[in-house]
Design a protein around this nucleic acid. Structure first.
Lengths: 154, 154
DNA sequence: TCGATGGGTTTCAAAATTAAACCGAAGGCT
DNA sequence: AGCCTTCGGTTTAATTTTGAAACCCATCGA
């Protein structure tokens, strides 16, 4: 995946396309921090501890791809702020999914000391669930990929 | 992120932990293909077009981390099969989230010709939604990270 | 037995990541 | 004004990772 390219097979797949955008090391952590309220280069840098040139490259790429927009703070010529665009904000579902999977599968019970809570009432948010069109809960093997056009697939 | 390590700050975060496991290039595509039914080294290799040494390294890591298990096909000494463990299968929510984000944000309207459908009735699955404990729909800015222990945070 | 597959490992070049040094602009202080 | 610090990067050089291709070996089929 050297040149940020994926073979053609995958390019037609939503997952592959998403990963082309946010599959880089650090990228989703930068986005996560943006949700935490970070906006400035130095904030991301200090919090994540990644090399500045890499952060610079990632932010540049993310701005190009419309995940972040640069806000050149209007009231002064101060340093640029990187703010999530609506497209970037929509990644929250991905972050929640990763958070939940990590919480369930990558921590000792009771090890994790933070949680995602509802801003309004402070209650933990509900676990994400994959559901069928009619609302049935779907498990890991209850869905498949199907061709939308042409014949109704096998 | 060179040595597959994340700084301490992030290590306490479910997202960071998840990415330590599945944040590598190719990894989630390998998992995706596993959901498609691929099990053999050569299948992943041919379909993804990644270098064999990298595939080898990824599979090894994923097996170690309990995402895949090796099934040494019982009825013969044939080649190993890489099958998802329950832990690996639970990644489907992450894949669905990435799929949906990609579909909405990385394709021209009508460009994508596949979809995720319910195995039972073939209907497209419902869009994932982040919800509050009480069922309210939560938007990108309607949640935050909170400390679980100690004082009730600011 | 011979060639072809499958499933890797080894090797080496190309590319990405890193840490650290450097740089210019803006702000604060005296 | 001069000086120092901070911020937001870029540049450079060393280290890692990745990728492509070559190679290995066990099994399979004829």
């Amino acid at each position: 995946m050297k040149g940020r390219k994926i073979n053609l097979e995958g390019a037609n797949c939503g997952i592959a396309r998403s990963l082309q955008v946010v599959g880089d090391w650090w990228t989703l952590l930068i986005v996560r921090d943006a949700f935490r309220g970070y906006q400035r280069f130095g904030e991301f840098h200090k919090n994540l501890g990644l090399a500045k040139n890499i952060l610079s490259a990632r932010l540049k790429k993310l701005v190009q791809q419309g995940i972040f927009a640069i806000e050149a703070h209007p009231d002064s010529l101060s340093s640029p702020r990187y703010v999530l665009t609506p497209k970037g904000e929509k990644l929250y579902t991905v972050l929640v999914a990763l958070w939940q999977w990590g919480e369930e599968n990558c921590f000792e019970p009771g090890e994790m000391d933070t949680e995602m809570v509802d801003t309004i009432d402070g209650a933990p948010i509900k676990a994400l669930q994959v559901k069928a069109a009619d609302g049935r809960l779907l498990g890991p093997r209850d869905f498949r990929l199907a061709s939308r056009l042409s014949s109704a697939d096998a």
